[in-house]
Amino acid sequence: MNQHHGMTLIVKNTTRLVSGFIAVFGVYVALTGHLSPGGGFAGGVILASAGILVVLAFGREFSQRLVTETQYHLYDSSAMAAMIILALLGYLAGGFFVNFMNATSPQSVGESVGRLNSGGTIPLFNLAILVKVAGGLAGVFLALAAFRAGGRSQGADAPSVALPGGAGEKED
């Protein structure tokens, strides 16, 4: 199987058909995470698996044209930053991680229980976790796939020593 040109036509066509549905299902699982089993992590994994399917079927080069490694880094880190900022915004309502968007007290279940717009900040956290997990997991997979295809010169996601043997030059 040629890594650079992906798999057979059957796999490619099937991927074309299903990957969009998988991605939408991942977002759905994350968005209803406060009402039913699932949540940001599960949704993120499903969303990432759509991306992984594309990498497997079409090869790494194709998928890097869709989302580059830099973009994965940015999704990953900005989602994490967003999560912490959401937690810090809780200070406005009295403390760290306080659910400041909930009208009632955070301990009690809101009146609109069972609705999509309940839960205060929890759906927002789920959304941030969705982006974080999907970006992180797909990024990890892409880095590992890149490694297999071309070794470290292909932008593998790990640092390397600039000078072999740790022989640092004199600085300053």
Binding site: H73, L74, D76, S77, S78, M80, A81, I84, I85, L88
Partner: peptide
């Protein structure tokens, strides 16, 4: 927050 910010 900084650890995430550094990556960005």
């Amino acid at each position: 927050l900084t650890a995430a910010g550094i990556v960005a």
